[in-house]
Simulated scan of single mutants.
Amino acid sequence: MSKKWGVKMEIKMNSISVVIKGKRIFSNITDTMNSGDMVALTGSSGCGKTTLLNCLGLIQPIESGSILINGKDTSKWNDKDKTKFWHKYATFIYQDYGIIEDETVAYNITLDKSKAKSKAVKNILDKVGLNGRDSELAIVLSGGEKQRIGIARAILKNASIIYADEPTASLDSENRQIVISLLKECASNGAIVILATHDDRLVSECNKVISLNKNRN
């Protein structure tokens, strides 16, 4: 990861608001994120951090306002456009790891058995501290190791945008620091890294913080 990867991206929120089942989750959020930004979405429990993350990932629709990606209004995108965006540019690191436990570590990174033994996968496993474990079943991994699999997927993909939902939740201090360092390196290599988190240590490493507590009404 010594070279820049992904393509240059900009995400712009213009006064976005979300209402779910008649309840206003947040309103009038305006901000801009660019390649190299590490962005923390913060706030008290239930304030809408994950909802905003999903909006930025085009998973959750917004009620009003607009989300522009490289100047294009995503409200005009159809399912094919969104699928293309995820295929080419974005990846999601899940709080519950998103691991297929009865498959190998290498397969969980590539999701393609024909690529699971490639040199690139071995190099990435070394990078995330899982070298030599490519043939092990993912079920034997610890929580921190499973979280590193999600980051390894982003590195293999050269993802331009990385979305992560509570990526350090329930990790011990050692794995927490490994995950934070890997996410920082992804940002330094050109990705926009967007994190829904309540981890103050992780927030302190971000160059941009968007607090949802100020946008509840």
Rank of each mutant, 00 (worst) to 15 (best):
I178Y: 07
G190E: 06
K208H: 11
N54D: 10
N78Q: 09
R216C: 06
S181C: 01
V140A: 14
V105L: 12
K8Q: 14
L130V: 15
I139E: 15
I20E: 04
I180F: 00
G129W: 08
I151R: 01
D31T: 15
I99N: 08
D81E: 14
N78D: 15
A116P: 09
D126F: 06
N34L: 13
S66N: 11
G6D: 03
H198C: 03
L58D: 00
I194S: 00
K4S: 13
N54T: 10
C206E: 08
D165H: 05
N175G: 11
F26H: 00
L111V: 12
R201Q: 13
G43K: 02
I162Q: 00
Y89P: 00
T50W: 05
C55I: 01
K117N: 15
Q95E: 05
W86A: 09
S211Y: 04
I180L: 02
K208M: 01
N123Y: 10
A159I: 10
G71S: 13
K72G: 04
V203A: 10
D199H: 04
K117H: 15
W77Q: 01
N108F: 03
D172C: 09
C186F: 00
G132W: 11
S170L: 05
K4V: 07
V19A: 11
A164E: 02
G143C: 03
D126A: 15
D102V: 07
S45E: 07
N70H: 01
G36W: 09
V39G: 03
L202P: 03
S204L: 01
I99M: 02
L183Y: 05
G71P: 00
F85H: 02
A164P: 00
S135R: 13
S2H: 12
S35L: 07
K49F: 01
N158Q: 12
K214D: 15
K214L: 14
I210R: 03
H198D: 07
A159D: 10
D102H: 12
G22T: 08
I99E: 01
I100W: 06
K49E: 09
Q60L: 02
Y89I: 04
V209D: 05
S181M: 05
L183P: 13
T83P: 00
K117C: 09
T51M: 02
L111G: 02
F26D: 11
L202C: 07
L141W: 12
T51C: 04
I194V: 15
E185A: 03
A106T: 09
Q147S: 05
